[in-house]
Nucleic acid binder design. Structure first.
Lengths: 109, 109
DNA sequence: TTAAGTAATCGTAATATTGCGATGTGTTAA
DNA sequence: TTAACACATCGCAATATTACGATTACTTAA
């Protein structure tokens, strides 16, 4: 036991849960907000920005890249990261749909 | 090591990450969608609906209750659950703000 | 009362995540 | 070439999450 039983749920449910998982760490939120704020490719200064070890930062970047939310381009010796707008907007749309689905819910108990 | 270093991040970043964590399991997404679909208090039939053990289902319900997304009322021998519309809408607003923050981001690399 | 039902909690095992030092790979500057 | 730098990956330890059987607390029906 211990592993999530993905087969019990719909593809959509697993998808939304995985999207949420990508956002489920403050370091990853911080990375995304930083990239959004800069509104451009950011090279190098992410490790100092976060305060986590280089290895840990790299791991969070990898997860965001796997989720598709960011993309990295090799720029000489360093790597530049930026938001992937297409996936970003898709996330926004899917979470938006999930929550507006019940905007008019009634408080019953 | 192993524990999230919450003190490195802002209150808002930790808050968003915690909100995402509440959604980061397909069973919890399934529970929320079921409650939204029924649009009413649901008593009892959540265990059969999910296919997980009673103890596991109860644990997921507790997490959603802790997050504030659902509320439970004792109705005789069973417990009725429903969406907490206030918190639900707050989630929608916060995630919405997070993603619309960068709607006009440019693809740079 | 007792028996059956519902649901929370406890205890524990399996697995996943987080974090970091050490190491490896590739790039640039000297 | 060599030295310094940037970043990914490996390996491991600490912690968190997921899952479930067993137990407990409570309600209802008989």
């Amino acid at each position: 036991m211990g592993a999530t039983k993905s087969d019990l749920f719909t593809k959509q449910q697993n998808e939304i849960a995985n999207m949420a998982k990508a956002l489920a760490h403050p370091a990853r939120i911080a990375i995304l907000q930083y990239l959004v704020k800069k509104n451009a490719c950011v090279c190098g200064d992410l490790v100092e920005e976060l305060g986590l070890a280089q290895a840990t930062t790299s791991q969070h970047l990898k997860e965001l890249k796997t989720a598709g939310l960011i993309q990295g381009t090799i720029e000489g010796a360093s790597v530049c990261y930026c938001i992937n707008p297409k996936v970003w907007n898709q996330y926004g749309k899917i979470f938006g749909a999930f929550f507006t689905e019940a905007m008019d819910i009634k408080s019953c108990c």
